[in-house]
Computed example of a mutant assay.
Amino acid sequence: MRDEEGRLKPVVLISSDGGPDENPRYPKVISHAIHNFVKHDLDAIFIFTNAPGRSAFNRVERRMAPLSRELSGLILPHDSYGTHLDEQGRTKDHDLEKKNFQKAGEVLAEVWSNMVIDGHGVVAEYVEPDDSAESFIPDLPSQQWYSEHVRESQYLLQVVKCDDRACCGHMRSSIRSILSERFLIPPYPILQSSRGLYIPKPQEHDGKTFAPFLLRRSLEITPTYEGFGKLIYDLYCPSLQKDRQILLERTCQRCALYFCTKKKAKEHVNFCHKQYNTPEMHSVRPSRILTRRSNGRSREILCVVRENDDAEWLDETDVDLQLQLDETDVDLQDAYPVIGVEESLANPWSENIVH
């Protein structure tokens, strides 16, 4: 990953899992990406993930398959040093919970360390969490810097050097010869008809086939983008086609910059276009709420915003909790019940005795 001088190579591409802690929409991921971009003097950093249901194409998932197969039939007790749960299955002893978790991690490391994958031995060890590192979240730069260097979308984050050498310094690679507009051009399909090549409208696209990057870059045809100031990256994203309003709310109506959330778009407008009136931003109404946690600065809610989409962490202030509590009437602390081995293996059926 380093060049002859020992520096990190100038262009970094990271394929991440689509989970709530790793996806490129998560604010903490964005903060650390920008932090590393500046720290290592990168020309560009791209963090991308697969859409829901496409994890089979994730290289990490495929490499994890042998590790998961080795755990088939393995039971990891939650009470190796004694139970840390009360009668309701809630944690009553956090120190004991950490010891039990460490024991489970050490068992996993022992099992995996006995494996050989593709002729290479597996080295696994349990690493105790560093609370100080966990709480470190780099501060984001100004909105002006952010708007110039960062592009967000549903499954891709791009941070690229600008053309102001006083700001970013000289380019260390030839990436601009490939990305003449600095950022990756949006994906869209190109079809053949009796009248030549054409690009269908988003609502006419099957959501499965897209033209390769170099083909899109070389052909002098571009999609139409009615209602948007310019072509936004997620215009042809299949998982966002059901509600065009989402795309409009994520787009700045003044400069046409596109963001991965409505909150980010509102923040951009408030800081960069203060004189421009923006519609009132309502809290997100998720279809399901799973659990919550503290990220060191604020409380976060893990929720599914739209069905058939990945769960994601949202700031507690951005979620309409009252609606969910009224509908479900449950305590979020009990969202993930912990049960014993006997209960998990118990027969759910009762005998129907006929007299």
Rank of each mutant, 00 (worst) to 15 (best):
Y146I: 05
R151F: 09
R165N: 04
E134L: 14
L74P: 00
P202H: 04
S193Y: 10
E61M: 13
L74R: 11
S173W: 12
G119W: 13
Q154I: 05
S142V: 04
K201Y: 11
Q143N: 06
L197H: 09
E106P: 00
D164L: 08
C168D: 11
V150M: 04
V122P: 07
A166D: 13
E110S: 09
E110N: 07
R195W: 13
D86W: 01
V60E: 11
C167F: 05
V159Q: 01
L179I: 11
V122M: 11
L96M: 13
Q102I: 07
P66Q: 09
Q88I: 00
A104T: 03
P187Y: 04
D118C: 14
R90M: 07
M64I: 09
Y188M: 02
V60T: 14
D164E: 12
G89S: 01
L179P: 02
G119Q: 11
L191K: 14
P189C: 12
R172A: 15
L197I: 06
K161E: 07
Q192G: 04
I190S: 02
Q158Y: 10
E148Y: 00
H170K: 12
L191C: 15
D163F: 03
S72I: 12
P189F: 12
H120Q: 12
R182N: 07
R176L: 13
T91N: 06
L157I: 06
A109I: 02
D95T: 09
A124T: 12
L96I: 08
A109F: 04
D86G: 12
E125M: 14
A104K: 11
R90I: 05
I75H: 15
Q88P: 00
G89Y: 01
I117Y: 13
E125S: 15
H120W: 08
I175P: 01
G119D: 08
D131W: 02
P202K: 05
I185W: 02
A124N: 08
D130E: 10
V111H: 12
M64N: 14
P202F: 07
P202G: 08
H84Q: 04
P200W: 03
P138G: 06
T83M: 09
S135V: 10
I117W: 10
L184Q: 06
K103S: 10
H149Q: 09
K161G: 08
H84A: 10
L184N: 01
V159S: 01
H149A: 09
E181K: 15
N114L: 05
F183Y: 13
S177W: 04
N114C: 03
P189T: 11
S80E: 14
V150T: 02
I185Y: 02
C162K: 00
I137S: 01
V116K: 13
K92C: 14
S147C: 12
R195N: 15
R172N: 15
A104C: 11
P189E: 12
I185H: 06
G121D: 02
P200H: 01
I137V: 12
D79T: 06
G196H: 08
V60A: 14
K98Y: 06
Q143Y: 08
S80C: 13
P141H: 00
E152Y: 11
Q192F: 14
A124L: 09
S193C: 10
C168Q: 07
L67N: 08
C167L: 09
L74W: 07
I117T: 10
P202E: 04
P200I: 03
E128L: 07
Q143G: 05
R165A: 06
Q102N: 06
N100T: 06
